[in-house]
């Protein structure tokens, strides 16, 4: 009767079952899932995404190269200001053209407001440039260089490359870059140089990434072109200063854009992420609506 029927083990605690407490059923760990949320990466898409890092490295490189030219007196500040102004204007027009003004409508910002903040910024920087020039006079030049290196490195570390991590802070990143530019600018010959250096820093560290982001989202092809062009011009600029530096920089760029993606995809094969009923449940809804 009862023993003719095979008793099956159940995953319940409230019934006394005819099995020892350390019994291991065939169904043990049947709810185990592996690598649920693991993404399969495509090599070329990872290479494309690495463009952001390349761009930022190049920005820092171009900035340092320009500063070196100014410091050596090979580049007239008026010329840099003129080029910067022209490219800013082109960028400004492009910024609106790329997405057909959709972004502007969304933010509700007028052109008049843009002009006002630009003017305000330029006036203040111009007015304070003599102060910037003399601010760090009492500090040794070596300290200034060391500080700039650390600040630019910090800028690269904290920059918002699109990763959702705790370390990312675009404000901190921008502040570090501006700090580095102020340090370096104070070592230039005249206060006009300092003013133009800081303006250039704003253009390359604050405005240029915004345009890049939009380019990347709307026209990926042109973004690849711009990235390549930018990388080559940065390399060319570096080459005129130091051949070894240019080779090392080129190696760095190649390893970041080609080797690192390959390594990531290889490592992905070894990923073993375990999921199961013991995982803490996630609240997926937006619960703040009940409080607003």
């Amino acid at each position: 009767m009862a023993n003719a029927r095979v008793v099956r083990w159940q995953k319940v605690l409230y019934e006394r079952q005819p099995f020892p407490d350390n019994y291991v059923d065939r169904r043990f760990l049947e709810e185990l899932r592996k690598n649920i949320s693991t993404r399969k990466y495509q090599y070329w898409s990872v290479v494309f995404e690495s463009g952001v890092v390349i761009q930022q490295l190049c920005s820092v490189c171009v900035f340092v190269v320009i500063w070196w030219y100014m410091d050596e007196g090979l580049l007239a500040p008026q010329w840099l200001f003129g080029t910067g102004l022209a490219s800013s204007l082109i960028g400004y027009v492009l910024f609106d053209l790329i997405d057909g003004g959709a972004g502007r409508k969304k933010s509700g910002r007028t052109r008049w407001a843009d002009l006002k903040s630009a003017l305000l910024f330029i006036t203040f920087t111009y007015g304070f440039s003599p102060v910037l020039k003399t601010l760090t006079e009492s500090v040794s030049t070596d300290t200034i260089y060391a500080m700039s290196v650390f600040m630019l490195l910090g800028h690269l570390i904290f920059f918002d490359y699109g990763a959702n991590a705790a370390i990312v802070s675009s404000t901190l990143s921008l502040n570090m870059a501006i700090f580095a530019s102020v340090c370096l600018a104070s070592r230039l010959p005249r206060s006009l140089h300092a003013f133009i250096m800081v303006t250039f820093a704003i253009q390359i560290f604050a405005l240029w990434p915004m345009l890049q982001k939009k380019l990347k989202a709307c026209t990926p092809c042109s973004y690849v072109g711009v990235t390549l062009l930018f990388a080559f011009s940065a390399l060319a600029g570096l080459l005129t200063i130091s051949g070894v530096g240019a080779i090392l920089f080129a190696l760095l760029l190649v390893s970041i854009s080609c080797l690192c993606p390959y390594y990531l995809i290889r490592l992905q094969l070894f990923k073993e992420n375990i999921h199961g009923p013991w995982d803490e449940a996630e609240i997926k809804e937006d619960l703040s609506r009940f409080l607003t």
Partner: peptide, 11 residues
């Protein structure tokens, strides 16, 4: 204290 806990601890 439960079968789920056992699976968890074993892993």
């Amino acid at each position: 204290v439960s079968y789920t806990s056992k699976e968890n601890t074993v892993l």
